[in-house]
Amino acid sequence: MEPVSHVWINDVLGIPTSRLREDRLLHEAEATGGDPRRICDLFGLSVGAALRYTGTVDQAGLVEYNLRNAGPRPRRSSGM
């Protein structure tokens, strides 16, 4: 077996590998609550670069987007 190349990923997924990496960075920034140290450790970024990604976590547009796309809220049971 050969390692997967960026060409294969681009062809199969239909997006550039750089965009896939950026998506994973932004997701991890959100999942960790904006922890730049975690981003540095996982992706090998400098502190400055990690801060640019974690700086997106508290942006109002992202919060609204996540709320709109979170799906239906769980229903409360009224059995009490």
Rank of each mutant, 00 (worst) to 15 (best):
M1C: 11
E2M: 13
E2Y: 06
E2V: 00
V4H: 06
V4S: 09
V4R: 11
V4Y: 12
S5D: 10
H6A: 13
H6L: 12
H6K: 08
H6Q: 06
V7M: 00
W8S: 09
I9S: 05
I9M: 12
N10M: 11
N10F: 11
N10I: 05
D11V: 11
D11Q: 15
L13V: 15
L13Q: 13
L13M: 15
I15F: 15
P16F: 12
T17L: 11
T17P: 00
S18D: 05
S18Q: 08
R19N: 08
R19Q: 12
R19E: 09
L20T: 09
R21I: 15
R21E: 15
E22F: 05
E22G: 07
D23C: 06
D23W: 07
D23Y: 10
R24Y: 07
R24S: 03
L25G: 04
L25Q: 09
L26E: 06
H27T: 01
H27R: 04
E28Q: 06
E28D: 00
E28L: 02
E28A: 05
E28S: 04
A29N: 00
A29T: 01
E30P: 00
A31S: 07
A31C: 05
T32L: 05
T32R: 09
G33N: 08
G33V: 05
G33C: 05
G34R: 12
G34C: 04
D35L: 01
P36D: 07
R38T: 12
I39F: 14
C40Q: 14
C40F: 10
C40M: 14
L42M: 06
L42V: 13
G44L: 13
G44D: 10
L45Q: 02
S46F: 12
S46G: 14
S46Q: 05
S46H: 05
V47W: 13
V47E: 14
G48M: 02
G48P: 00
A49V: 02
A49G: 03
A50M: 03
A50V: 05
L51E: 08
L51K: 15
L51H: 09
L51Y: 08
R52S: 06
R52I: 01
Y53N: 02
Y53H: 02
T54A: 01
T54S: 01
G55D: 09
T56A: 09
V57C: 06
D58C: 08
D58R: 02
D58N: 03
Q59C: 13
Q59F: 09
A60C: 01
G61N: 03
G61K: 02
L62D: 03
L62S: 06
L62V: 01
V63Q: 02
V63Y: 00
V63E: 02
V63C: 03
E64P: 00
Y65L: 14
N66I: 10
N66G: 09
L67A: 04
N69K: 11
N69V: 08
N69H: 05
A70D: 07
A70F: 04
G71T: 12
G71A: 00
G71K: 04
P72W: 04
P72H: 09
P72C: 02
P72Q: 10
P72Y: 03
R73P: 02
R73S: 03
R75H: 08
R76I: 01
S77R: 15
S78E: 15
M80E: 11
